[in-house]
Structures are given as C-alpha cells and as structure tokens.
Design a binder for these strands. Structure first.
Lengths: 245, 245
DNA sequence: CGCTGCGTTGAATCCTATCAACGCTCGTGG
DNA sequence: CCACGAGCGTTGATAGGATTCAACGCAGCG
C-alpha cells in the first residue's frame, strides 16, 4: 500500500512511533463519495470523523435565500469532523469531487483517551487543529479587508502551500478541481466578477490556468501583492517529493 | 470569591467533579492588562494560555499597509491561546478594554495529559473549541455573503447570545465597549459606512445604543433579517441569572 | 442533435469606500 | 476657568469596485 496523503502530512508534523504509524495505516477506507455529497452524513446517519485521502472537499454554509459561502477547502491529508468541527454544526462538509476518505474514529479516540500512548499523533493533531483555525483567520482577513484581486492571489498561494505539503505540487503547478462559481463562493464574489478578476491576474502574468489546474508564475510578486506569508506551522522540515494517488 | 465567568461558562457546558471545579478555581489571576496590549506577549515574553474573567479582547490581524481586521471577539469566560490558537500565529490577541485573565496552563495541561482524570473539563474544552471554530465560520459567512446591514444584526445577535451564557445580559441589554471603528474593522466595513448602517438599524427600531451599551428591541425580526440561528452547542441547559463582575 | 454546465462579455446599477469637514465630550495644562 | 487637542460620532459629496441582468460560445453528453 502506497503511503497515502494522511500519513505524509502527519509524519511531516511530528515524529511518530511504529505503533502510531500502524494506527494511521489501520484506518479503514470508507466507500467513495461523489461530488456534492455531505461527508458527515450518509443516508441520514451521522458519519465518523474522517481524513481525506484524495480529491477535494469543502466546508460550506447556505443562507436561507440560497446564497452560499464556501468556508474552507479540505485537501488530501486533512481532516473532517470532530476535534475541530461540530458534526451538528450548520456548516456542511461537501465533497467537491469524487472523494475517498478513511475513518479516523480510532485516531481521534486514541488521542482523546490516552494521549500519552500516542504523543506524536497527539501533537500532530494539535498542530492540524491550529492550522485549521489559522486558515479560518486567513479567510476572514481575505473577505474582510482585501480586494477581489488580493483575495484571489492569497487563496492560490494558500492552496499551493497546502498541496505542496503533501507532494501534490509539481513545478509550481497543481490541480484545481473547482469551478469559477465555487471560487466566487469562496472569496465572497459574484461569478462574473470572479471571472474578470481571474482574467486580469492571468493577463498580469501571475499564473496560468488550464483544464482544472493552475501554474503559478510569479510567486514572490503574488506574495507581496496579497500580503501573504507562509504559516509558521512547526513543520519538521521533511520534504516530500512524490505521492502516488 | 464570587464565581467568575470561566466557571460559569464551563459548568454550563459539562458536569464537573469537585476536583475539576477546584482546578478551575485554582487558576492564578494574572496582572491586569490595559486596552491595546497583546495578551499573548508581555515585554517580549510569550504568555501562557489564559481565560478571560472580565472585559473584552479580540483576535486581530494587521496588513502591511495598515488595514486591520478584527477576527473574533473574546468575551468573559472564553479562552485565549493554545488549544485553538497558535501563540506564534500572526493573529494578535489584543485587549479592547482593561482586562483580567487567569493562567489556564494547568487546565490545558491536565486535559492534554490525563483527560480521563478530568472528563468534564476535557468535554467542556472540546465544546469550547468547537464553538470557537463555529464562530469563525459565522464570521466568514457574514463577511463573504451578507450585506452590511445583515452583518451588523448577525454580530449583535451573536454577542447577545454569548454574553447571555455568562449572565451578562439583562433585559436584552448588554455592554458593548467597542468603538464604531472597531465594529467596522470586525465587519469588514469603513467606519463611515458602519456609522450609517448603525443609524439605519436604530431608525428601524431594531435596537438602541447608548454610552457603550446596546439594547435589542426586536430580536426575532433581527434573527430573520440576518438569517441567524442559535448555535446548537450542547449546553446542559443551565441558566445563569446573575454574575458579580 | 439538443441540452446542460461552464466560461465569457457588455451595460447599467448599486452598495460601499474615500475624502473632507464639523460638532461634541473629555482630559490636560496654562 | 478657559484654551486646546484628541478621540469619537456624524454628515455631505464624489468615486469606484462589485453586482445584477442578459446574452452568447463552446465542449461534453445522453
């Protein structure tokens, strides 16, 4: 079995013992869910906390008149439910593409009950939880105080950074399986304005987009334009080269 | 010693044993900090995780060109640092008024090391952590998909609800020790537009404001206008009447 | 082949920001 | 005691970014 995104991310965050790694690899894979489905409820039944192996999901919320806000993306190796998310919250965890997850109940329980037996995992979970909230802070700043153009660059830099952590960036290029309308719902814009902002940024040579993938061209310029700084999250410094998906 | 906001909030979230309550009450009080100071760093030294006893604080972030975004308010009984917040994050924890906190290191350590010895506290901390992230989700939705008017009502309802949980609301009225400019920086608006939005809402009879306090007048109307629903956070249902501050 | 989802474009409108100025209150110091 | 300044709330006028409405091209697909 090839190392999946979860163990890549976790081992990048903390030193894990053999038993901890075993615990990770023992997480049972759940049936594949299709785009649009709620990861936290299946046929009315609440689902366990999970971690994403492949593909994208999102937290989102709907207003009563149909407006939608995508709150955060959930990328390979990241977690859904529990620990940081209330399953009965009004935020939905929606698959954006066809999605494979593993059941993380065992992991969550081990960390909650006997943190001393799994110190590495406990630490990694804490870091992931902090990263979750740091990302939400970022999102609030984008929406509250940045222009459409800045929001876009900032988000792309964020995704780049997160995907890089699990080896899903090659030559500054990564998959972006998301429609312009979803980006708009993420960045608090209309789809029309999203389109125009994208065009402007491409015309400015900051990045290229084609067939569901992006290639960043002027990262440092983007960073200064968007006031983006890499999260100081305490990575061990492990650098992952490849990932078989 | 009168029951302080922290124990009120914690006991409202979970059944606590006597030793757990003792642990709460044993938290040492830290020296009072004045408005504007960073709760998580003092003369360059990192501060321990804390819980607010009285007054208001906020998480905020500054952009390099001076724009400011207030990300979340921290109210009496709520926590700062660790567990949900990375002390080295780029978000600052700034006191909005003169502030008294207690050192929650012991609490955090007890929950992290031996959760089984303090199951009530562990549960309460989990719920608080979930509430933190639910609030951030709310804030994202406000900024991303609501109008200035809706944002204002939604925020006021939120504050009302949170302050009510620690007995700081009397007759739908509560202290709001915050300038219009701070509200603007919270809701992603300019100070001028904040002022006009406030005037409009007051003229509409939704609430009154005077000398640092608000009185909500048409709560149900506000709720439907702002698409606000109370957090489903699993309160035990304990209802606190008064709080000596 | 027609339909549907997605990206694109143009025009008009509106919400919100910006700039500028003024009144008020309060604390300080002459 | 009054002048002065700072902080805060308020108002008017103007500009601009973003939305809305509408329409069209295109590719994929049953």
């Amino acid at each position: 079995m090839s190392p999946h995104a979860v163990s890549i991310r976790m081992t990048a965050l903390a030193d894990l013992s053999d038993t901890e790694i075993e615990l990770l690899q023992a997480m049972p894979q759940l049936p594949r869910r299709r785009a649009g489905q709620n990861l936290l409820s299946r046929a009315g039944h609440e689902q366990p906390p999970q971690m994403l192996i492949a593909a994208w999901a999102s937290y989102q919320r709907l207003l009563s008149d149909g407006r939608r806000q995508i709150i955060d993306f959930i990328l390979p190796g990241e977690g859904v439910g529990s620990l940081t998310h209330d399953p009965q919250s009004s935020s939905l965890a929606i698959a954006l593409t066809s999605v494979v997850t593993v059941d993380a109940s065992g992991l969550v329980r081990a960390v909650a009950d006997r943190p001393n037996l799994v110190p590495g995992l406990a630490h990694a979970m804490r870091l992931m939880s902090r990263a979750d909230s740091a990302r939400l802070h970022d999102q609030v700043v984008r929406l509250g105080r940045q222009t459409a153009y800045e929001r876009l660059l900032h988000l792309l830099l964020d995704l780049h950074h997160r995907l890089d952590a699990v080896g899903l960036v090659v030559d500054n290029s990564f998959a972006l399986p998301v429609t312009q309308e979803m980006l708009a719902d993420t960045l608090g814009l209309s789809a029309v304005h999203m389109n125009r902002t994208l065009q402007q940024a491409r015309k400015d040579g900051l990045f290229e987009m084609a067939a569901g993938s992006v290639t960043l061209r002027k990262i440092e310029l983007m960073q200064s334009l968007a006031d983006w700084t890499p999260a100081v999250s305490s990575f061990k410094g492990v650098k992952v080269k490849h990932l078989a998906v």
